[in-house]
Nucleic acid binder design. Structure first.
Lengths: 203, 203
DNA sequence: CACTTGACCGACCGGTCGGTCGGTCGTAGG
DNA sequence: CCTACGACCGACCGACCGGTCGGTCAAGTG
């Protein structure tokens, strides 16, 4: 009522698109379906977005920015590797669970982005991946982690679970995201504790 | 030359479809592209397959049958849990790496299958999932594995990496599938060795 | 009041999609 | 030699796709 614009037309379009993309996939969703769900006309969508691909990219941009911000903050704290890795897992699991639909689209449809947009997303993802790998590598060199597997394998393992989480996670499920994050962190850190060095207790 | 049929028209269609689905995705690939790549006419495709969905299902059927057969064989051997889990990881990594294109399509496009076909595939996948979970659960009860995480989380972790493997694995990469499988098994088994109960040696 | 602006509308467009179907052709059976 | 048949061909179909564009209308400005 205040201004000449209905509140959140743009965000309603994005929300409708995310829901439909998550349910059906990007290609299987027509822009007509999106505008019908959002309750607007086709012209409104193309008033706010350049193309269907631009709409998809919007989903990615928001999620990847959030994850990158969380990671940067955690690394800046410069805590010991076990705590840092646990914090990273906790943050990633939390954001993935909270935005499960977006995450589902994210990891399933990335190949459908325009080349330019795809490169931007991949660059951010690689940045996250490399940061975690480097954390593990340094911790192994300093003896904080056992060298039971390469840093790359540890990273792939952690993100493997997290990326697939939106496939099976449900808010109505028996476990909260916090519990899931704790379990995953326990498993990974137990593995990285190895059999040789410190017998750090796991609550 | 022997019979009236060109050798492998059907399999050439499947191979072309797998390659294109892996490169571009299922929806983004037209049947015209498939027949062009296979070097046949459209009629040939619809002579061998009922629909485009049927063609997609063919990819799934073959892969899931192979994986289920491998798993059954391993479980039938009734080896101790650590060896069994290591064998399962080895088998899954090997088949996934050997058929990376199929696996990529598999885990990315499962939601595009017809409901009936999707249920069949999901049933087989759940069977695999449940078998591994049960293996872990029993091993934890008997003290062979530490209870650092729930059996479900262990399973999700193992299949998380494996399902994402086709995204980053390359035959030209520095590591063989065997090496990757060993690393992953080392990491997971090290985690499951835990620090609480018996320090069972890991070969 | 006239005029501008920008959010939004929806009929419409060229093109492509998955799928069809009447026809051709090489081989096997009689 | 004739007929039957399965494998395969490719022009064609209606539906629907993503995207366009001339128009409408409410609020802001002077």
């Amino acid at each position: 009522m205040t201004a000449g614009t209905q509140p959140g037309t743009r965000s309603r379009i994005v929300a409708a698109a995310v829901a439909l993309f998550a349910e059906q996939g990007y290609d299987a969703t027509s822009v007509n379906q999106v505008v019908a769900r959002a309750g607007v006309a086709k012209g409104a969508l193309y008033h706010h977005f350049e193309s269907k691909d631009d709409l998809l990219y919007e989903v990615y941009r928001e999620l990847v920015e959030r994850q990158l911000a969380g990671l940067t903050e955690i690394l800046a704290a410069r805590n010991p590797p076990p705590q840092a890795l646990r914090a990273i897992i906790g943050d990633m699991v939390a954001t993935t669970a909270a935005r499960a639909a977006e995450a589902k689209v994210f990891f399933r449809e990335s190949h459908r982005l325009t080349d330019a947009n795809q490169q931007r997303v991949r660059a951010a993802r690689r940045q996250i991946h490399d940061a975690v790998t480097e954390l593990v590598r340094q911790a192994q060199q300093q003896g904080d982690f056992a060298a039971v597997a390469s840093p790359e394998m540890v990273t792939f393992t952690v993100f493997g679970v997290i990326n697939e989480l939106p496939v099976w996670y449900s808010p109505d499920g028996p476990k909260t995201p916090q519990q899931l994050a704790t379990e995953l962190a326990d498993l990974v850190l137990s593995g990285l504790a190895g059999s040789a060095p410190m017998p750090r207790g796991i609550a």
